[in-house]
Amino acid sequence: MPTNFLVPPPAIRESSGEYLAENGISQLAISETQKFGHVTFFWNGNRSGKFDDKTETYIEIPSDVLPFEERPWMKAAEITDTLLTELKTEKYRYARLNYANGDMVGHTGVRDAAILAVECVDLELGRLMKFVQKAQGILMVTADHGNADEMYDHKKDGSLATDSTGKFKPKTSHTLNQVPFAIYAPGVEGLQLNPEIEKPGLGNLAATTFNLLGYQAPDDYLQSLLKF
């Protein structure tokens, strides 16, 4: 934060991480350098540091410093390696991680590298699913926004735009698209999505997390995606 600022930032209070810390529910946050701040600082409501050193662990895997279209796998495998090593200690009730590939490679505008980036993430999802099945845990999978889902510019009618030579025009920005959300809970019976939520969004994930941990969400949180 700059010492002097023209506009005060949003005052985000009582984030899910703080609730977990206050209730002694152990947490792990992990990503590579490019997204480490997102699973810690931004996740915690633009707040630096931990709420509780005793129950929280934050791990940063150093990112490569090079054009990511040359290494679309980035550090996804290393993130999974470290995450699984930590989770096998059975120290943690909750873990959050971020695979940066779809976004960082998406920003390069190189479609074929982005395809590989997405495939790398999927490969890691498989490892997480295998672990969760064995550990009798639950895995939620989602995304923070779109990017790799549109690697070329579209025209207003939805068709692809081309340059003067007839080539598709690379698109490097984020998108306005929805993101997937899945709950993988092997062996758990009776979980169901709440069909009454009309426009589910990212803000509904935290309440869902509390539910999956066996708790009610705080009253002022957006609704859980699950119905109980």
């Binding site: 997102h38 909750y94 873990a95 959050r96 993430v121 639950i138 995304a143 923070d144 779109g146």
Partner: peptide, 10 residues
Amino acid sequence: PVITCVMDGI
């Protein structure tokens, strides 16, 4: 454990 996996930009 309960795990949240964010697939950034997907």
